[in-house]
Computed example of a mutant assay.
Amino acid sequence: MRRALRDNGLSLFFLALFALALAGQSIAGFFRNNSELLDHGMPAIGFGEFVTSSDFLVDVAENWQSEFLQFFLFIAATIWLVQRGSPESKKPGDEGPGDDADQRIGAHADPRSPRWARVGGWRTVVYGNSLLIVMGAIFLLSWLAQSLGGLVVMNEENAMHGTAAITWLDYVVSPDFWDRTLQNWQSEFLAVGSMVAFSIYLRQRGSAESKPVGVPHHVSALESE
Score class of each variant (00 low, 15 high):
82 V>F: 02
12 L>V: 12
199 S>P: 00
3 R>C: 04
135 M>L: 12
158 N>K: 14
217 H>P: 01
214 G>S: 06
84 R>Q: 14
12 L>D: 11
62 E>S: 11
49 E>Y: 00
12 L>R: 14
29 G>A: 10
78 T>F: 02
158 N>M: 06
19 A>Y: 02
188 E>K: 10
53 S>E: 04
111 P>C: 10
81 L>H: 04
17 L>V: 13
209 E>N: 12
79 I>A: 13
221 A>G: 07
135 M>D: 01
10 L>S: 12
89 S>D: 04
152 V>R: 06
109 A>Y: 03
199 S>N: 03
42 M>V: 08
105 I>T: 09
93 G>P: 01
214 G>A: 08
172 V>H: 05
54 S>W: 06
215 V>D: 01
186 Q>P: 00
67 E>P: 00
181 T>M: 09
123 R>F: 07
88 E>K: 07
218 H>W: 14
147 S>T: 09
56 F>K: 04
143 W>C: 02
102 D>P: 00
31 F>D: 13
104 R>K: 15
11 S>W: 11
124 T>L: 03
122 W>V: 09
132 L>C: 01
121 G>Y: 10
216 P>Y: 10
216 P>A: 15
214 G>M: 02
62 E>M: 07
129 N>C: 08
49 E>R: 10
58 V>C: 06
64 W>R: 07
223 E>P: 01
45 I>C: 04
23 A>N: 13
219 V>K: 02
161 H>N: 14
32 R>L: 07
42 M>S: 15
215 V>S: 02
10 L>M: 12
223 E>R: 06
74 F>T: 03
216 P>V: 09
167 T>M: 01
112 R>K: 11
159 A>I: 01
37 L>P: 05
184 N>R: 14
23 A>P: 03
143 W>M: 07
117 A>M: 10
83 Q>K: 14
215 V>C: 04
221 A>V: 08
91 K>S: 15
30 F>Y: 15
90 K>V: 01
113 S>D: 03
199 S>H: 01
94 D>S: 14
41 G>P: 02
24 G>C: 11
142 S>C: 14
194 S>V: 10
223 E>K: 03
159 A>N: 03
88 E>T: 03
43 P>I: 08
63 N>W: 08
200 I>Y: 04
209 E>D: 09
75 I>T: 09
181 T>N: 11
30 F>Q: 00
207 S>D: 03
96 G>H: 09
157 E>F: 02
31 F>R: 14
7 D>F: 04
28 A>I: 10
204 Q>H: 09
25 Q>V: 06
182 L>W: 11
56 F>Q: 10
72 F>S: 13
64 W>Q: 09
30 F>G: 00
208 A>D: 09
140 L>N: 01
134 V>C: 06
218 H>I: 06
167 T>V: 03
162 G>S: 12
